[in-house]
């Protein structure tokens, strides 16, 4: 467990004790099963409690875990027959957004997501999951394709935000995102969005004007990265825990504010500990959402999407 979190250390200690007891019982022939069982039970209890009471900073650590499943892991585990469709058709194939056709339980869908890598080399290819405007335009092309052929759209989002750079500004990063928000509203097919890790700012929202929006248990969704918020409001980026707490970025708050439709449970210890369980959980959420949306006409879907975002906000008059 080279990738254990600091806050998991007490569990590792108990596990070490268990190993010792097992070794002892093997060497001495003593029956220590009862003690081992008790300890194992305690470890499990402790872990459960720990993961049910994570603070936002701990959740952020899990959401940013390098081995957290990436978009293509989910595609491979949930879907069959994936055909990646490349490029924005006007000059660029931004690898930070990957998308294509796939079958989900035999049904063709358009699946699009922000992509991160697990190694430095991969992360350079995918630009750490930070899309350029060209990535949003590629996604838009795929949205239009899905709309034309009546395919449901599934987006999986894990991004620290849209890339802040010279070329991104020259090529209208803001307008590229804005255009996606507007055009997603017009789509006549079901759209399901899942924030699977980091859901930062307009860069995440640019793929998330959906009929149903879900968040993984340890994922977060926020207007600005906690570090960015801390450096502006506290003038100190190291106050990111304070910012993460104040921003209320985790599933329970987002449910309360009506931002998300549901939380997708992660395997104990986080999504990275069991890819298959995680992917199955995500898949069944998607299938349930699709069956809810299937009876709706294109116009119904547009109206539902409009009304959903129309209601969001808090004010008095």
């Amino acid at each position: 467990m080279s990738t254990a979190f600091d806050f998991e250390k007490p569990i590792l200690e108990i596990q070490k004790e268990i190993e010792k007891l097992k070794q002892m019982s093997l060497e001495s022939g003593m029956d220590l099963n009862k003690d081992i069982e008790t300890l194992e039970h305690e470890a499990a209890e402790f872990k459960k409690e720990l993961f049910e009471n994570l603070n936002p900073a701990q959740k952020m650590q899990i959401a940013r875990h390098p081995e957290r499943p990436k978009f293509l892991d989910y595609v491979n585990l949930m879907c069959t027959d994936f055909v990646e469709l490349h490029g924005d058709r006007v000059g660029t194939d931004d690898r930070a957004i990957v998308g294509g056709l796939a079958k989900l339980d035999g049904r063709p869908v358009m699946i699009i997501g922000t992509m991160k890598g697990k190694s430095t080399k991969e992360n350079l290819e995918y630009n750490f999951g930070m899309p350029q405007p060209e990535g949003y335009r590629k996604a838009l092309r795929l949205f239009y394709h899905a709309n034309k052929f009546n395919l449901p759209i599934i987006t999986i989002i894990d991004t620290p935000g849209a890339y802040p750079g010279i070329s991104a500004e020259k090529h209208a990063q803001g307008a590229a995102i804005a255009y996606n928000l507007k055009e997603m509203q017009k789509l006549k097919v079901p759209v399901i969005a899942i924030v699977s890790g980091e859901g930062c700012s307009g860069g995440a929202l640019g793929l998330a004007v959906a009929n149903k929006v879900y968040l993984l248990e340890h994922a977060y969704y926020t207007v600005i990265s906690p570090e960015g918020c801390a450096s502006i409001l506290w003038r100190d980026a190291s106050k990111n825990l304070e910012a993460a707490t104040a921003l209320k970025i985790t599933a329970p708050h987002l449910l309360k504010f009506g931002i998300i439709d549901g939380m997708i449970k992660e395997p104990m210890g986080g999504a990275h500990t069991d890819y298959e369980v995680m992917a199955n959980e995500m898949k069944s959420t998607i299938l349930n959402a699709l069956s809810e949306l299937d009876g709706m006409s294109g116009e119904d879907l547009r109206n539902q999407r409009y009304d959903k975002f129309r209601k969001m906000g808090s004010f008095i008059e």
Binding site: L181, G202, L205, K248, F257, I259, F309, G313
Partner: peptide, 8 residues
């Protein structure tokens, strides 16, 4: 996130 959703 409520502000973010105003963009949508």
């Amino acid at each position: 996130a409520l502000s973010l959703m105003q963009m949508a």
